[in-house]
Structures are given as structure tokens and as C-alpha cells.
Simulated assay, not measured.
Amino acid sequence: MKTVAVVAVPPVKAFDLAMPETLLGAARVASEPGYRIIVCTAEPGIVPGGMGGFDVVVARGLDAIDEADIVIVPSTGSRGTAGEATLAALRRASARGKLVTSICSGAFVLAQAGLLSGRTATTHWGLADELGTTFPDVTVRTDALFIEDGPITTAAGAAAGIDLCLHLIRADYGAAVANAAARAAVVAPVRPGGQAQFIDSPLPPENGLSLAATRNWAMERLESPLSLDDLATHARTSVRTLTRRFHEETGLSPQKWLLHQRIHRARELLESTTLPMDQVARHSGIGSAESLRQHMLRHVGIPPSTYRATFTRTPK
């Protein structure tokens, strides 16, 4: 079990503050909790909420950070004005090699602590210019839901915090555990960190049609070759319209979306089966064992054999 310290920097947003408990608390490994979550703050007691929100009561002080494996700083109305005690505790955690993360405007706290200096980070797209102007030594990107730069991970707006939490679960315990946590929280299990923060046309087209049915159809056929023509035929539209609407609805091209789903399927098969690598590649639609190896290295960072040894949930 890993210990997670969620740091409340007033004024807090209750939704972001509760998010790690909701997602990480749903992670179960062999029926046991995967995480112990502790909410802490510099001055325990009543912590003010944001404008129009409500106050919360936090019992633990910053000593919780010292015993944590992972530190999360959720969104806060304090942009660049966090107290020195909080900043010092975050610096200690980073110096000790702990994973330090932020959600939305929590990136301002990490930047104030100096943890983002010389690094690439993200925050809510509406705050990106302010973050970059206030802390010019930080490279700010808005084309990502979350960004890992060494031991520091930053997430965009509130919903991206969900993606961050699921990413943490996948990194610690594998895709199967992360999927189960996503199902428990009734959220989508896979949104890659490099996906755009927002889409230009979030609502379905005026004719009421959506590509959701086509995406579900493709998910049931990942092991088969699927071309743009195949997807367009199922959606009863042109390839050009299909591509445009895929970007509108997912922020990804059809090809990138398919690849992410296939890699995710391969990860599940590596965790839950003893299939040879060539069969894992075939059943996930990736093709050959060598292609699987290359994609895993590029997108996950380790070869499939190492991934299986790390995350397998079945006897070898």
C-alpha cells in the first residue's frame, strides 16, 4: 500500500480536494486497498473554500507529507502565495525522491516552491499565460491533460485530475487495476496524457449524430485491421468528415485513438494472461511481437516483457 498526501492550500476547491480519495481509494490490489490517502494542510482545522464554495475541515498537518510516497496539490485559489511551511514540505518531499504532482492551479504552488524550475508543466488552459508570466523559468504547455517531467507531474483542469489519478494507478498497479477503479468511479478508463485539454466543438453535430457507436464497434474489433474507410463506412460518412468529427469528439485522430486503445488492450493482456508476445500483439491488433515491443517502449517506456514481469496478476 502506498501513502498519498493530498495538500490543501487555502482557499481550496472541494471537488479537486476529494478527487484523489474517490479515484485512488477505488484501487484494489488482491482485494486490498492500493493507497492510503491523507488530506493535510499547514494549519489543521477549518480550511476556507473558494468563492461560492464551502469550507472544509482538515485534521492533519504537513507532517503527513513526510510519510507519503506520493504528494498531490489540488487546485487552489492561492496562485503563487502559498505559505513557506507548505513550500518547504514540498521541497523536502521532492528532495527525498517522492512523486510530487499537482491538479489545475496547484501547479502555481509547485512553481512557487521551485519544483517546476527548468521543467515543462501544464495547468488549466485559462491559467497557462498567468503561470508562464509569473514563473518564466517554467515551460507551460496547454496541449496535454497531464505532463510528467522527471519526478514532477502536473495535470490540467479539474477533470484532468481524474486522468492523473488513473495514470498513477496504472503506473503503480497496472491497467487492469486502473480500469477497475475507473469503473467504480464511472469514468472513462483511458484518456492519454497527450490529448488536447479541450475540443472546439464539444457538442454532437446538429443532426444529433455521434461517433460513439463507431468507437464502440471499433473497440470490439481491435484485433482486426481497421482502416479509415472501415470506420467511415460504419459511421456512414466520408473519411474527411470522420477525421474532423473524431478530432471534435476525442481531441485525437482516428489512427491515434485506435493505437492508444490497442496499446491499452495489450497492457491488459500482458497483465492478465500468459499469452506469448506474438499472440498479445495479434489479439490487440498491433501486429507482430516486434511492433508490440516498439510501441510499448515508445508509449509506456518499458518493453512488454518487463511490463508483464512488473504488473502480472496471474501465476507465471
Rank of each mutant, 00 (worst) to 15 (best):
G157M: 00
A158I: 15
A159C: 14
G161T: 03
I162D: 00
L164Y: 09
C165A: 06
C165R: 01
L166G: 05
L166D: 08
H167A: 10
R170A: 14
R170C: 11
A171R: 11
G174I: 06
G174F: 02
V177G: 01
A178G: 00
N179D: 15
A180D: 14
A181Q: 03
A181D: 06
A185Y: 05
A185Q: 02
V186D: 09
A188Y: 08
V190D: 03
G193W: 01
F198N: 14
F198V: 15
D200F: 08
D200I: 10
P202C: 12
L203W: 15
P205H: 03
E206K: 12
N207F: 10
N207R: 10
N207V: 12
G208C: 03
G208Y: 04
L209D: 09
S210V: 10
A212M: 13
A213N: 11
T214C: 07
T214H: 00
N216V: 07
W217N: 03
E220T: 07
L222W: 09
E223R: 08
L228I: 13
D230P: 01
D230L: 02
A232W: 09
A235K: 02
R236F: 08
T237M: 15
S238C: 09
R240T: 13
T241N: 13
T241C: 05
T243E: 12
F246P: 00
F246G: 00
F246N: 00
F246R: 00
H247D: 07
E248Q: 13
E248W: 07
E248L: 02
E249I: 07
E249D: 11
E249P: 02
E249N: 06
G251I: 06
L252T: 04
P254M: 04
W257K: 03
L259H: 04
I263W: 01
H264Y: 10
E268R: 13
E268T: 15
L269K: 00
L269H: 05
L269R: 02
E271C: 08
E271P: 04
E271Q: 12
T273H: 11
L275F: 11
P276W: 11
M277W: 07
M277Y: 12
M277T: 12
M277R: 09
D278M: 05
D278K: 10
D278A: 12
D278S: 11
Q279T: 14
Q279H: 13
V280P: 01
H283Y: 12
S284Q: 03
S284P: 06
G285R: 00
I286L: 15
I286A: 10
G287M: 07
S288H: 13
E290T: 14
S291I: 11
S291W: 06
R293Y: 07
R293N: 11
Q294Y: 08
L297E: 09
